[in-house]
Structures are given as C-alpha cells and as structure tokens.
Simulated assay, not measured.
Amino acid sequence: MTHQIDAAHRVDDEAPRDTRTAVLRGFRRRCPSCGQGPLMDGYLKVADRCPVCREELGHHRADDGPAYLTILVVGHLLVPFIHVVFTRLRPDPMVMGTLFAVAAVALSLYLLPRLKGVVVGIQWAKRMHGFSRPA
C-alpha cells in the first residue's frame, strides 16, 4: 500500500526536536524549547508563551494525563513500602494510615506539576496539538 502526500498535506519538514531534553526541561518546569523560561504561570497553569524565547505554550492538551501518571507513580512507589512496613513492623493501623496518607499527598503534590511539564514537553518534541505551527 502506498501513500501519496500532496503539498497541502505535507508533513512538517522542520528539524527533529530532542524528546529527552524536552522531557527533562518539562520535569524541571522550564520551557521545553529554550529551557530558560518558566513553563508554569501558577501551580498547574501552563504559561501562554515563554517569556524568554516567545514559544507558544498555551495550546497544549495535557488533560488528565498528568493526574493519571501521578497516581501511577505514587502507587508504584508507596505500595512496596506499605507492604514492608505492614509485614515487618506491624504498626497501629491509624498510625500507618496517617503516615502513608501524608506521604501519598506530599508525593502527589510534588509530582503533579512536574509530570504535567513532562507531558507538555513530549507534546512539544513530537509537534503535537499545535506545536508544529511556525511562530
């Protein structure tokens, strides 16, 4: 099966963007393009554009991806600790529940904006959701 691409539907011919660099910059909550400007305007609001390089960032589509990834990571990190603490130390259930609830909330609050930056960095590197349009 062959595909013909006419001029109106031509794939973006710009140079490839480094996904790893964009992901690391996103995790640090920096602009995936220049790595200098802040990615976020607040705790979770992505800036409309980078103040340093003027890259448009407002059209990202992170949606529920960062929340899902946060739950996935926090669960995978805490469950082994919960198991070890429960089987070896046998603390009072209220103590154990309180400690791990606080740990889960703290870890979630730390990771959520960073994982949102990762999702935006991936979208920027892969030219998804409007990141392919020239500025």
Rank of each mutant, 00 (worst) to 15 (best):
L107S: 00
F27H: 10
A7T: 14
L44R: 10
P134F: 11
M1E: 15
Q123T: 08
L78P: 03
A104T: 09
G65N: 09
W124I: 00
C53A: 04
V84R: 15
Q36N: 15
A104Q: 08
H83V: 13
R88I: 11
T70A: 01
D41W: 04
V119C: 01
F27T: 06
G130P: 08
I71G: 12
S33N: 13
V79F: 10
P80W: 06
P16S: 04
V105C: 03
R133S: 10
A106H: 11
D12K: 13
P93C: 02
A62W: 15
R61I: 02
P91K: 04
R54L: 03
A67F: 04
A7I: 14
R10Q: 14
F131E: 01
A67W: 11
V85T: 12
E55L: 09
L107Q: 06
R30H: 07
T87D: 07
W124T: 02
D48P: 09
Y68K: 13
P113S: 01
R28S: 09
W124C: 00
R114N: 02
G65E: 06
A62Q: 09
R29S: 04
D41V: 09
D6M: 02
Y110L: 13
L78T: 05
K45N: 11
P93G: 01
A67N: 07
D12F: 07
C53S: 03
G42T: 05
F100Y: 07
L69T: 07
I82D: 04
I5D: 09
V23P: 07
R30I: 06
L78S: 00
S132N: 14
R20K: 15
R49D: 10
W124Q: 00
V84E: 13
H83N: 11
D64S: 03
G117C: 01
H3N: 12
A125C: 02
V73E: 05
W124N: 03
E14N: 13
M94P: 04
V102D: 11
G35W: 10
G26D: 06
D92H: 11
V23C: 00
V52K: 06
F27M: 05
L77K: 08
D6I: 09
L24E: 11
P38R: 05
V105R: 05
Y68N: 14
V118M: 05
F86R: 12
R17T: 06
E56G: 14
H59M: 05
